[in-house]
Design a protein around this nucleic acid. Structure first.
Lengths: 124, 124
DNA sequence: ACGTATCGCTACGCATTTCGTAGCACTCGG
DNA sequence: CCGAGTGCTACGAAATGCGTAGCGATACGT
């Protein structure tokens, strides 16, 4: 399987198409597949307020390798979450609305940090 | 760098510790690292209303391999998001509150599906 | 006690993904 | 022409995820 494309990488998850780990194509599964890829949420996060050039975005993302960043940006553009303008990459209207759903995560993470600070983990 | 580490897996991302792709340890980065790992959001999603046994959870997650599921459950337990009871795995109170933040994603994904249905992507 | 069926979970080897470095093609200002 | 900026790709190496098989423990029926 996997076609003989020059650059072979996994298909961008889109609603209606099977996502990794779910053949149903339900939108939520495609979204979780997309958001579950490395750097995707980080990219959205770093674009929360600014239009960033490819290299500025790369720097903001702890100097992620350009090959992975290019792949993730292609995914996000295909998904209609990010667009490339003359000034650089920025969130689309859809991306903005998705970001709004991610903002409460910030507050949750802060509370989480306080709770974890008290409890040393004891797995296993 | 990083010598061979047999049978060792990446540490569970926790607030205050460096996450993959971010050495700052900011809670949001640790959370994005944790949620960005494959199957983590799916597991939370599948546990949204029920207590599930390991195998039932595995079946719900499209028969994910048990090694990965065990690793993710260990992460989630260390993070205090999931707990193991005599009846099986279930979300903790923290996990429930995190789930509440994920629910709007479902609605977003549905709208996303409708929008993507209209527009065939034309990147590049 | 025995066989069977479930449970949570691990070992191990292979496939996929990600990474890091290098560099290309292009544009703009000097 | 010459840097310096842009977006982006190639390619080998490392990290991560996956699938199959199976372990020890527990619970049940006979």
């Amino acid at each position: 399987m996997t076609a003989a494309r020059p650059t072979k990488r996994a298909a961008t998850p889109l609603p209606g198409r099977p996502a990794r780990g779910s053949a149903t194509g339900r939108p939520i599964m495609a979204l979780l597949d997309l958001l579950g890829r490395r750097w995707v949420q980080r990219v959205i996060w770093e674009l929360r307020g600014d239009t960033l050039s490819f290299r500025a975005l790369r720097a903001a993302c702890d100097d992620v390798s350009p090959s992975v960043l290019a792949a993730r940006l292609a995914d996000l553009r295909t998904a209609g979450i990010v667009e490339l303008t003359a000034q650089g990459y920025r969130l689309t209207a859809d991306g903005q609305s998705l970001l709004q759903l991610m903002l409460p995560l910030h507050a949750w993470a802060e509370r989480w940090a306080r709770r974890m600070g008290r409890l040393e983990p004891s797995p296993r």
